[in-house]
Design a protein around this nucleic acid. Structure first.
Lengths: 340, 340
DNA sequence: TCAATCTCGGAAACCGGTTTCGATGTCTTG
DNA sequence: CAAGACATCGAAACCGGTTTCCGAGATTGA
């Protein structure tokens, strides 16, 4: 090995140069008391002089903590929800000195076997983990990590059980807001298109929708209800199915991606939103404004911030913290028309 | 400390249970030769039985490598380019057992001072680093890490100097494709709106555009050239400035975000793309298809893959590898009209 | 002045792995 | 049957930090 010169300076080097033991240097690094101010300054001076920075790997090993947080998400980055939540997480945790380990999906390990979340977390000695938007199907996989002592926060999902911490939007209210708005415009026949009930948020929205429709004396026929998926394609499917019906609802409440798919599909068959159908979306994803879609916004960035704060609290207290319900807000654009 | 039971199993535990030394277990883990098949199987059995996974932190410390790659990007995640590049990186590096440390921007460290990239990399002992889309202004900050022995790959940017490895699209060709296409439609008066020359890709595109315009005998007046920024707002600005001109170009070549801003701005003043103006974009970002924008696509996912492969090669060889120029491709949609 | 206390710093164990090198036992070969 | 070659395994050092605990000096109080 030639490149001896580039070897990073270690705590031993500093100790030697400063004529103290590495224990002393360590105490200076960590700001412990019991070190004479004079020697502290001397050590600090040598550290600066050699541009010394302690090896985080070694430190993680002995301290059993890493200042690392695992960020797991159900699908890939290329999801409009994640894009906005993650910056909130990154900013907040970063400000506290945490770095983020980024896992967009379950990957095979060296053995070819998929990592469990717990293994991955233990493996890297993360101080905590944040999970984004997993659905019910996958819940069983969280049992090991929940049974462990690794601080964990869920975002946009909930798990049954007393000890989970999560951040989630008030999806019930979102649906209520959407329906009430449509009601105020005179709509009485409401359709619904959203993800299936495997998704906790979609399920809550469904409940909110049905309850509000009932309370306001509106109509929502079973054939106007579409619960399957969150993507644009599904919006096309929904429009296809609608076409086979004798009577349409006058308005549809749909997750934004689905709503946009519907708008496109309707355009292609010569129908217009809002003239032929009013639509209210859920989420307010980035492209929604491009479609002039009226939608109920989730505070995505703020959810990232809230999740991070929650996680840090758990890391400190070592017990699950209160879940946080985020408020939602109706963003009125141009995809709804009053019924005259 | 109560929770003794949850302590992860260590290599010592396995060694004890299998009646061998930890050296032997280590050799089995790493697949070294010199271990009898029978004992190997015995050790593997115990490992499986205890669901053992070696501690990466400890391993990093002694092997002097971390299986960690730092991913740095100039702005926030919420950038359409990153969204597509990152999955390519994640998949490729993940398949090789690397995890990704995610840095969306420069954050203050414990001391309140901004981390340099080199410090951050040394700190976490990353095996390599990937930088996305930084501009000329920031280049000086890369000197320390380039002078170090940390393998580094740049994406969508280049640095002067003989030893840098990078992956970048053939932006010159992109502009050429765009202009040639417009020429084939009969256009002779071409406008241009893109980022400023601080961005290497934008600069190359400008060159490609000007060269091709000249070679084909087309016209591109100075007042039709807008070089400032990559966002939608700027598209509005461009349209504003165009309105003050006596004569417009018949077609504009613009980065996708700018192009979309222009399309929206034109709509708002009652003009249509492509009827009143043809537009060809650069990049093919996600929403481009929503605007039916004809554009020159960058292979973003593939760039992520290429960058990862390049990086792994450098990690192995410990010397800079050949830069990789990615091909681009014209995606014809509906934002251009023939000139009759 | 002497004991008790306090301050400060260091030796050594530890975190959980990897790697070197020597010891032991087995197998060939002459 | 003795000697050399080979296969297999383990003891111990090492990676670069943290932390416990103890001892030496300095300080204080009676």
């Amino acid at each position: 090995m030639a490149k001896q010169g580039t070897r990073a300076t270690t705590i031993d080097d500093i100790a030697k140069k400063a004529n103290v033991s590495k224990a002393t240097v360590s105490k200076v690094i960590n700001g412990y008391s019991g070190i004479n101010e004079k020697t502290r300054q001397a050590v600090l001076k040598v550290m600066r002089e050699y541009n010394y920075w302690p090896n985080t790997t070694a430190r993680s090993l002995s301290m059993q903590q890493s200042y690392l947080v695992g960020l797991f998400m159900a699908s890939e980055l290329n999801n409009s929800f994640f894009r906005e939540v993650i910056p909130g997480i990154e900013k907040t945790l970063g400000a506290q000195g945490y770095d983020i380990l980024y896992f967009a999906d379950k990957r095979p390990g060296n053995t070819g076997v998929s990592f469990g979340y717990l293994e991955k977390c233990r493996d890297r000695r993360v101080d905590g983990a944040i999970f984004l938007s997993y659905i019910r199907d996958e819940l069983a996989e969280f049992e090991p990590i929940l049974a462990s002592d690794i601080p964990t926060v869920f975002v946009d999902m909930t798990l049954e059980g007393p000890l989970t911490s999560y951040v989630i939007s008030d999806n019930y209210k979102s649906a209520k807001l959407a329906v009430e708005y449509l009601h105020s415009l005179g709509h009485r026949k409401i359709g619904y298109a959203d993800g299936g009930t495997k998704s906790v948020p979609a399920e809550k929205r469904y409940q909110g929708l049905m309850d509000t429709v009932r309370d306001l004396g509106m109509e929502c026929r079973p054939e106007w209800i579409f619960q399957y998926s969150f993507d644009e394609e599904y919006g096309y499917d929904v429009v296809n199915k609608l076409q086979q019906l004798d009577e349409w609802p006058t308005a549809v409440v749909a997750q934004d991606n689905v709503a946009i798919g519907m708008i496109r599909a309707l355009r292609e068959i010569g129908k217009s939103v809002p003239d032929d159908l009013s639509i209210v979306g859920f989420d307010d994803i980035e492209i929604s404004s491009h479609y002039n879609l009226t939608t109920v916004r989730q505070q995505k960035y703020e959810m990232g911030v809230a999740a991070s704060k929650l996680l840090m609290k758990i890391i400190l207290n070592h017990k699950a913290s209160k879940p946080k319900l985020m408020d939602t807000e109706l963003i009125i654009r141009g995809s709804c028309k009053p019924i005259t």
